[in-house]
Design a protein around this nucleic acid. Structure first.
Lengths: 246, 246
DNA sequence: CGCACACTTGAGTCGGCTCAACCCTCGTGG
DNA sequence: CCACGAGGGTTGAGCCGACTCAAGTGTGCG
């Protein structure tokens, strides 16, 4: 199925290559993404397959059940990966941001719905051509596999979170995880943007919106953080890390 | 990190190959495992690297924190993958059985402890030589990647289970999942062996042992299943499937 | 027989959920 | 400019499902 790729330490090589602007080789997220595995020539091949795409907030990229005929790389903004249970309950699998890859685990049909939270830009690759490209590039496959492994550890960490942690631990842990992910893409700051709504956070952590809201305001009152428009400012990291306690 | 590979539909090719007994080519789980990707000659190479290993119940294969210097293929029995939180809480990531691969996502150190639940046999591969072998065999890497993707979907399903389902749904769902996994390795039956203890099930589902016990006896009383020594017999699949309601 | 260990069962508690207001901000239109 | 409505977020009161704590029941093994 589909999944975010968090961001394992980028391992790219510089690529001096004169070309018209806007290409993959000038892509500012290249070194953060699987594309870091490619040489200049390979980037050209990739670029030939790619298609730029922009999403407005609330716009869907695809929906659970749609035939899975493309994979994507997020180059700007943030999207939400969610799943609807037959009885209406919703589970938010995660959030994909700059550098994340959508489509590591591809079944016949997407089993999540992906929607933009903020204005988002992506590279789209048709599934078949992309698979063919990968087939001829073991190091790209290797990179994808590496990502998949990394994803797997993240998924497992999240399982532990969901299964064995209290509401407060979940919220603290979520905020710190978001901070770390921003840091990995060079946006490290004590102020963490939260483009998703409270309901999204709740559905991600296995809580209700009321619980998330209550805990955030409590952490605010306790001066562990400061709620600001569009996010939070983490004013007492020690306290939060204590709560999240790996 | 480490992880079970459930069992995507096996896709192997028959391999007529005369050789001394006990080799990979006679391995009865080959077609269920990643080894299905290999030709006879490649199997020989693999076999040269492999090391047979047997575990008695309760015996550990390795522990959380040990340097991750090998990967494994389970050929018999069942192991438990668990993780200990700093405060003593435990989370059981899953159970690996016949055909499952341990080591898809390998960080520096194992982040789970693997212990045998029943008498277990495995193939052990040193990490480096195995990685080298894989590096020269794109179709094996491909197979591993496929598995990783499959694992990822399983992990995500389990997340949904942990985050958004009630205790009863969790238990019913767990039993059906176990049944399906047995079926995939040719042990399909309405009687499901549960070599793990109640505590293990509880730690896997994010419940307490008492809750698991209570729900099993309730389902028994309601004639949805029958508790038998070492497992359960699912006597009313419809009812259970209703409860698990994907 | 008797201990150990896994499991079951019961009574009481509590964390997080449900239900229901309420508040605030922002966009729209009169 | 203000009135208004909608949507997101907050807050409160009460409840309930799963947890905690504690005892009891097998069952296998030395």
């Amino acid at each position: 199925m589909l999944s975010r790729t968090g961001a394992p330490p980028p391992t790219g090589h510089a690529c001096v290559h004169a070309r018209s602007s806007g290409g993959c080789s000038e892509c500012k997220v290249r070194l953060l993404s699987v594309c870091a595995a490619l040489t200049c020539e390979e980037l050209d091949e990739l670029e030939a397959l790619s298609q730029r795409l922009h999403l407005a907030p609330r716009q869907a990229l695809f929906r659970q059940g749609d035939p899975a005929d493309a994979v994507y790389n997020v180059t700007e903004g943030m999207v939400r990966l969610s799943r609807l249970l037959p009885d209406g309950r919703r589970h938010v699998m995660g959030f994909a941001m700059v550098g994340d890859f959508l489509g590591l685990a591809l079944p016949e049909r997407y089993n999540v719905t992906v929607e933009a939270l903020s204005p988002t830009a992506l590279c789209r690759f048709e599934r078949r051509p992309f698979a063919n490209l990968v087939a001829g590039k073991p190091h790209l496959l290797r990179k994808l596999h590496e990502r998949a492994g990394y994803e797997l550890t993240l998924a497992q960490d999240h399982m532990t979170l969901l299964g064995r942690r209290t509401a407060e631990e979940k919220v603290a842990s979520f905020l710190l995880t978001m901070r770390d992910r921003y840091a990995l893409v060079g946006q490290g700051s004590v102020t963490v943007a939260l483009p998703m709504g409270r309901q999204d956070i709740a559905d991600h952590l296995g809580l209700t919106i009321e619980t998330v809201s209550r805990l955030l305001t409590r952490l605010d009152r306790e001066k562990a953080l400061l709620i600001v428009p569009g996010g939070v400012r983490l004013t007492n990291l020690d306290r939060l890390e204590n709560l999240a306690a790996a």
